[in-house]
Each structure stands twice: as structure tokens, then as C-alpha cells.
């Protein structure tokens, strides 16, 4: 009996030495998915152009050509109280960047306080829709600029912008702050003999700048270097939002863009930032990208923006 057990044990020992003993990889079926329209449409009250990203989704294991993602001849409609205000067809041409169309819209298409619906349809897909109400313009008392804004946590010098908000009470408000930089450059003027005969001031921009990450619990990182703020901690109160950039000694002018955004847009931006942040961190909990489309994927976001020039 003992010998039988010994031989059995030996057989097990030897069989476990096949291949890599501590890791094996087996293939699994992917989770099922539904074919859907994916649309990103974000616009503001005074906008005359809008970026529209449109695509379809493919299963996580499918590897179609990039050109297969764009949905040709997709109909998009903007409606107010079921009345079509504007419509658009994506046509047959695939955009250069594979998904985004830079499209003109009528000035004044979106008005403060109004509710709009977007519908997108295509014979091969289930139609999708979403609704948004444009928030009131942000109540900003003033914006101040302090060239000497102190030192950040890394010991670098910063400049600061202080935006004084008057948050309306009783409603949840969401804000987005961005910065545009108007660059000034003093360039020499040369004569035909390449001698400097004077100086000219050139003005470039504005181009987008990046705010520094803040430890203010009200602030979160938004798209493209912007800052998102929700009013959950200061509902109905005056609030100073302090925004910082690296100190730049060359002369500059700045435009601070203050937007009232919808809650859906706020959540979507936040989820997209967290999603991309988690891509490089294998220990991070997984992140879902928010969508507010019924039967579809993506975001319909509307905003109301004010601009403040400071120098």
C-alpha cells in the first residue's frame, strides 16, 4: 500500500513539472456587447462652431480598421420642445482625425436656461438621445491676478488668479475654469543689411494653458488643463476660487474662461480624467466613463461661458 502511495505521489510531482508550474494562460470569451452610437457633443451659448466626435463601438476583442469606427451619414438633430432647431448629417467623408468634425452651428442656437434634446439616428443602429438644460451664466464678481502667487508644494514660484464667485443658492452648480494665454513677444526689426533698426511687439494666441493641481478640496482636474468645481461645499455662498500657474517672467496677457456647466458634463469630464489616470496604474480601481445618452454612449453637454481678460 505504502509503495502505491509513494508512486502516486511521485507521479503527481512529475506531472506538476510540465511547463510553467505557477502560471498558465487560458483564453476566455469576452463579455458580450451591444452595437451602439458613441457621440460627444459639447457646446456653449455663444458658440458658432462645435466639435462633434462620432463613432460606433466594437467588441473589446475586435480589431477593425480605424476608418470603420466613423459612422457615415449619421443624422444629428437638436430639438427644443420637440421642434427641430438644427440638423446635421455626418456625410461620407471620414475626418482626418478619424472621428471629430468641426462643424458650424447658428449663432444663438443655444440659449441660457433652455432645455435641449439631441437625437442621433442611423438605419444600422438604435437611435440615441439625451437632454440638457443650459445653466445660467456664472455669477463672477471679479477676477484678480497676482503675479507673485507664492510657492507651490514643489517649491516652484507660481502666479495666482482669484475668481470671486457668487454661487446661486438652492441648485447644484458646476463650474469649469480654463486659461488662455496671449503671448507677447518683442522682436527686433532688421534693415536690408540685417541691422536692428527697432523693435516690434507681436501678439500671439490665445493658446490654452494648464492650471496646477490644487489641494483645494473643491477643485478637480478638468479636460485640457482646466479646473472643475462643484458647489457642494459652498452652495449659495460667495466663494473665492484660487487658480495657479507656473510663474512666467516673459510678459503675457491671460484670459480666464469661467463656464457654468451641466452636472452631466462635470461627471463626464471627471470620469474621463480618472479613466486616463488609471490607465498607467495597474493597482488602481477600474474607472467607468460616464455617458448620458439613452441607448448610446457619450456625452451631450451644454455650458454658459464668460471670459475675463487679466494681465
Amino acid at each position: 500500500m505504502r509503495n502505491i502511495f509513494f508512486l502516486l505521489f511521485l507521479a503527481i510531482m512529475l506531472s506538476s513539472c510540465d511547463g510553467d508550474p505557477f502560471e498558465s494562460i487560458i483564453k476566455l470569451d469576452p463579455p458580450p456587447y451591444d452595437k451602439k452610437i458613441a457621440l460627444q457633443f459639447r457646446a456653449g451659448v455663444n458658440d458658432t462652431f462645435v466639435d462633434i466626435s462620432l463613432s460606433r463601438n466594437f467588441g473589446i476583442l475586435e480589431t477593425p480598421a480605424d476608418s470603420a469606427f466613423f459612422i457615415k451619414n449619421l443624422n444629428i438633430e437638436i430639438l427644443e420642445s420637440d421642434q427641430v432647431l438644427w440638423q446635421f448629417n455626418s456625410g461620407n467623408d471620414i475626418p482626418l482625425n478619424r472621428a471629430t468634425i468641426y462643424q458650424e452651428i447658428p449663432h444663438g442656437l443655444f440659449k441660457s436656461g433652455k432645455t435641449y434634446e439631441i437625437r442621433a439616428s442611423h438605419p444600422d443602429f438604435t437611435s440615441i438621445s439625451a437632454k440638457q438644460t443650459i445653466p445660467e451664466a456664472p455669477a463672477v464678481d471679479s477676477v484678480r491676478y497676482d503675479f507673485d502667487g507664492g510657492i507651490n508644494s514643489n517649491g516652484d514660484e507660481v502666479s495666482a488668479f482669484e475668481v470671486y464667485l457668487n454661487d446661486p443658492a438652492g441648485v447644484e452648480n458646476f463650474y469649469q475654469f480654463s486659461i488662455g494665454i496671449i503671448s507677447l513677444s518683442i522682436n527686433p526689426i532688421y534693415d536690408s543689411n540685417n541691422n536692428v533698426i527697432g523693435y516690434d511687439t507681436l501678439r500671439y494666441g490665445p493658446y490654452d494653458g494648464y492650471f496646477e493641481v490644487s489641494d483645494d478640496p473643491n477643485q478637480e482636474e478638468g479636460l485640457n488643463g482646466s479646473v472643475l468645481v462643484g458647489d457642494q461645499f459652498f452652495d449659495g455662498q460667495a466663494q473665492k476660487i484660487s487658480l495657479k500657474i507656473y510663474k512666467d517672467y516673459s510678459p503675457k496677457e491671460y484670459v480666464i474662461y469661467v463656464r457654468s456647466i451641466t452636472e452631466d458634463d462635470f461627471i463626464w469630464q471627471r470620469s474621463l480624467i480618472r479613466y486616463e489616470g488609471a490607465q498607467d496604474n495597474p493597482l488602481s480601481d477600474p474607472v467607468l466613463i460616464y455617458s448620458n445618452f439613452k441607448d448610446g454612449i457619450g456625452i451631450f453637454g451644454l455650458y454658459n461661458q464668460r471670459n475675463f481678460k487679466v494681465n
Binding site: 458613441a38 478619424r98 485640457n224
Partner: peptide, 17 residues
């Protein structure tokens, strides 16, 4: 948590898809 599908869209940097 596992993604079921992927699509093309704007990422966190404007203008990039």
C-alpha cells in the same frame, strides 16, 4: 470590471481623438 467595447472619442486633451 471589464470593458465590453471600445470607440473613438475625444480624450482629455482637446483636439486629440
Amino acid at each position: 470590471t471589464f470593458p465590453t467595447s471600445s470607440y473613438l472619442g475625444q480624450g482629455t486633451n482637446l483636439g486629440y481623438v
